[in-house]
Every structure is written in C-alpha cells, then in structure tokens.
C-alpha cells in the first residue's frame, strides 16, 4: 500500500472544511477516500453519514451518500445492503450517534452480521451539539453536562460498545485505533483497509473505532489533545484488534 501525494479522486476538490483545526474527522475522511481509490471501491459505494459533526461528510467524500437520522445509520445501511448486496456500504458515525441514541441499531446490525463496514469516531463528547457528555466520556471528564467531571454515581461508566459487539458471531473484524501520532494514523488506515477487505470478501460485519481528537470541546490545543488521547482516552479504551474471525469464515 503506497501513499499517494495526489488528491484522492473520491475527495471533493475546492471545498473548504467545516471541521475545527486539529479535528480527527478530516483525517479519517481522507483515509476513507484514499482506500476507496486504492481498493477500487468508490464507484460502487454508498456511504451513510450521521447526525453529528460529520453530518456534512458528503461535502467532502465524492461518493453516493445518504444522511441518517441521529443514530439510525446502521438501520439505513441494512436497508441499502439488503436491497443492493452488490454494493459496498459504509456507515460513518460518532460516539453519541452509535453508542447512545443508536445503540439498538448498532447492536442488532452487528448481531445480524450485516455485511457492511462501520467507521466509529470516538471523541468522547457530543461534538456537534457543543461538547456534552457522551457514553464514551471517561470518568472525571469535564463536559458541558458533566461540569464537575463524569461521576460514576450519577453518570455511569464509559461504554465499551465495540468490545461488546466484537463478541458477536456476526462481527468478523473489530479494531480500535487512534489518530494521536503519525504511526497511529498509519495503523488506522491499515485497520480500515482490513475492515473494507472483510466486506469485499463477503465475510460479515466490520467496525473500526477511532479515538479521535476534538480540541474544541476538550478545550485543549491540538498537541495536548493528542497527548490526552495517549495518556487518558487510550487507558480507558486500549488500542488493538478486538476480534478477527476472518479465518473462520
């Protein structure tokens, strides 16, 4: 896999990003666009974008896309993939979207082993609505709705949804990666590539959880955001392959 210096063909040109400086969404969009090109998938892809900061993903990704209601991405993806099993289907979701309001859709699409790929951006907050607590917020994390820090007594504990679905027979590949360093970004691309291959080979459900910086709502600069991923977020959500059942299928 060689990195290209040219503009990826599935990334729209002449668009101004709406993402904040240091945001992880743009990095993952770029990785997705590169892989759709390198794996020759973009022409036969339908993507589903979420309600969340990535709601405008279709402004950047030059593929057919449909926008989901908050949390419903994997239900829409199910409808698309069942109606058109010949297409490559992608659901892109945030942590509030995928592990709060869309928990049922996430769990059951995974359990059915739907043959699509989920890209799960875990930035430990609700980015779009202004930095409220997410199911993935870590203990003591200050957010606009946990101003004193997340307290297990009243707010519960960080939800490890990818670990949960990784246990399902229907989930063929699950990995957690991070965007905190260039090395981690390269691994992120590798993980998404494996997830895409899982779908191309018709082996079942694949999901990649990406620990992703949200400097704006974390109220940190970009460098500190990356350090916070390494020193705090990653401690709660360790990186690595959570399941790989490709050989068994």
């Amino acid at each position: 896999m060689k990195l290209k210096n040219e503009w990826p063909i599935y990334y729209k040109k002449d668009v101004v990003t709406h993402y904040c400086p240091g945001c992880g969404h743009g990095i993952v969009h770029r990785i997705v666009a590169e892989l759709l090109e390198e794996m020759d998938l973009g022409k036969r892809t339908i993507g589903v974008n979420p309600a969340g900061c990535a709601v405008l993903a279709y402004n950047y990704l030059d593929i057919d896309m449909i926008e989901a209601a908050h949390g419903r991405g994997t239900a829409i993806a199910t409808g698309i993939k069942r109606a058109r099993p010949d297409l490559f289907v992608l659901s892109y979701q945030g942590d509030g979207d995928l592990s709060a309001i869309g928990t049922a859709e996430t769990i059951h699409s995974a359990n059915r082993g739907e043959k699509f790929t989920v890209i799960f951006i875990n930035n430990a907050v609700y980015g779009m609505t202004g930095g409220q607590m997410a199911p993935t917020s870590v203990l003591d994390q200050q957010t606009t709705t946990s101003p004193m820090g997340r307290s297990p007594d009243v707010d519960g504990y960080p939800l490890h949804i990818t670990d949960i679905v990784a246990k399902f027979h229907g989930v063929t590949y699950a990995e957690r990666v991070s965007l905190s360093t260039p090395k981690n970004i390269r691994r992120t691309k590798k993980a998404i590539q494996i997830a895409f291959e899982t779908q191309v080979d018709d082996l079942g459900y694949s999901i990649v959880e990406v620990l992703s910086p949200c400097p704006t709502n974390w109220k940190m600069n970009t460098v500190d955001s990356c350090k916070w991923i390494d020193n705090v977020l990653e401690k709660e959500f360790p990186l690595g392959v959570l399941t790989d059942k490709r050989e068994k299928k």
Binding site: R72, G79, I80, A104
Partner: peptide
Amino acid sequence: SETAAINMVIGAAAT
C-alpha cells in the same frame, strides 16, 4: 424495533 424498520425502509427506498 419499528424505528429500525422504518430506517431500513429509508435505506432500501433510497436504492
């Protein structure tokens, strides 16, 4: 759920 069902409808109808 019915919520999931109608969203599956959206996905299939979109194709």
